[in-house]
Design a protein around this nucleic acid. Structure first.
Lengths: 129, 129
DNA sequence: CTGGACCTTCCAGTAGAGGGGAAGGTCAAG
DNA sequence: CTTGACCTTCCCCTCTACTGGAAGGTCCAG
């Protein structure tokens, strides 16, 4: 399987695949005599794993940690659990902050809908903020 | 007021202040004969405005739009309302996505808490994801 | 044998909001 | 007169996940 086929099969681009290999997310591909990358089918599972990791909000660096542990012959499950837990509490915080922000902006906008525009003074730039 | 004092007074850095001036967020500062930036007190209000804009999740580019309108002698209120409305609907979407992601990760983590680590197989990398 | 589609490597750039640090000027204190 | 703290401009670096493009090699059809 050449890189273009793999890209099509997994819904990504050849650029991205080379980039992933460079970043250690994919094992160095076998090469044809001409130097073309030659993939076996199991690389698809690896790419799916990467995509699932991304869908879970993990960074490529974190996903690389996981595949590195697996590459060292260990089970990365413990680490994955830790990552997911951390991600979850980060997410919780992030959501709360955004909700608070939404509250703030809603109030600002409601005020903005009431005040007469011309009463703004230049030294405040805009009283709506 | 020199740049270091202003930085301290507004809780930022001299680097950032020069950067803001460069980006058109702050008016070009007066200079002392020696070439030092010399600020008057009203710059503090401008910086507070910038900080409020950032706290509302606006980008520096958006904040610059606002101060440019004000700089042109017009009232930016209309534009601010539009920005806030847009920001609000973006925020809504963002929050919903994060909540969906939280759901996904929660499920993954709950599965991870149950499965025996050793049952992971290498070709999946990790079944928890 | 030529054209076009593919592949290779390497170098550079994107966005956003600054930060690091060099080389040099200025000011007040001791 | 010197030291140290401050200031100036200038250019490059950070981070993330890619993307663009140049220069050149390979493969297959016609």
């Amino acid at each position: 399987m050449r890189i273009g086929e793999l890209a099509q099969a997994t819904g990504t681009t050849t650029k991205t695949l080379r980039f992933y290999e460079n970043q250690g997310l994919l094992p160095p591909a076998e090469r044809t005599p001409a130097g073309y990358r030659d993939y076996t089918d199991d690389i698809v599972a690896r790419l799916d794993f990467i995509h699932r990791g991304q869908a879970a909000g993990l960074s490529l660096a974190q996903i690389r940690q996981i595949v590195d542990i697996r590459g060292a012959g260990e089970a990365p499950c413990e680490h994955v659990r830790t990552l997911l837990d951390t991600r979850l509490s980060d997410l919780e915080q992030q959501i709360n902050q955004l909700i608070a922000l939404r509250e703030t902006i809603t109030q600002l906008r409601d005020q903005a809908a009431q005040v007469e525009p011309d009463t703004c003074s230049a030294d405040q730039v805009c009283r709506y903020l």
